[in-house]
């Protein structure tokens, strides 16, 4: 009983602050990352050859470097060439750029899977290339990319724990500090893990709902795994 009271009074408020910080990391990173992914995905399929190469290099490096190395580069590396970032900014930039590279892959794959005739039909109606891509191809491709993008959002929730490694104190960071302070590693990390499980489960459920909602009747809903 004492244990429960202690957890409720001492640990819960701190952990909630950590959850809030995690959400503040995850939401902007998800939005920026998704946006970067769309832009670089479109560049990789329909861009000018130079843009194509650049976007390809971006994806190669940001998918190839471990996220933790990227975070270290932003937080510890950039100051050596004169750019200073707060832990929060470094984490958001790191997460956005890394997940953008993964989103870009899903969107590229989805764009390539849209039938070529769609673009030709748009041209024949007098659409410019940019308009055709944004109003004809992307709306179809995004629906196909959504399962992959959704996975990436879920990965982002889990990888947000790495922000702790660049001293941005979010849920894992709070948990670690509390565990060290009260010397209750098992209980506190179990709670932290449970909170992540809840966040991931809610996100999974929400994304499934979204997929069903935006499916075009008659076009089927592609099921991956």
């Amino acid at each position: 009983m004492d244990e429960l009271l202690f957890l409720r009074q001492e640990v819960a408020p701190e952990l909630l602050a950590g959850v809030w910080m995690s959400i503040k990391l995850i939401v902007p990173s998800a939005i920026f990352g998704f946006f970067i992914g769309i832009v670089s995905g479109v560049f990789r399929v329909y861009g000018h050859p130079v843009l194509k190469r650049l976007a390809g290099l971006y994806v190669l490096f940001f998918r190839g470097f471990p996220l933790l190395v990227q975070l270290y580069l932003w937080y510890f590396g950039l100051p050596r060439i004169g750019i200073y970032l707060s832990p929060f900014a470094a984490a958001v930039i790191g997460f956005s750029l890394c997940s953008g590279a993964y989103h870009s892959e899903y969107i590229r794959g989805a764009l390539l899977s849209v039938k070529k005739g769609q673009l030709l039909a748009a041209y024949s109606l007098g659409f410019s290339k940019i308009r055709a891509v944004f109003s004809i191809l992307l709306p179809q491709a995004m629906r196909r990319a959504l399962p992959g993008n959704g996975n990436e959002f879920i990965y982002l929730i889990k990888y947000s724990s790495l922000a702790y490694m660049v001293t941005c104190i979010e849920l894992t960071g709070k948990g670690s500090i509390l565990a060290n302070f009260y010397f209750k590693y098992l209980e506190i990390f179990a709670i932290v893990g449970a909170i992540y499980l809840v966040m991931v489960s809610i996100a999974t459920w929400g994304l499934n709902y979204l997929e069903d909602r935006i499916a075009i009747p008659g076009f089927g809903r592609p099921k991956y795994n």
Partner: peptide
């Protein structure tokens, strides 16, 4: 997350 599992 891996980090939490490692700590746990």
């Amino acid at each position: 997350p891996l980090l939490v599992l490692l700590f746990l």
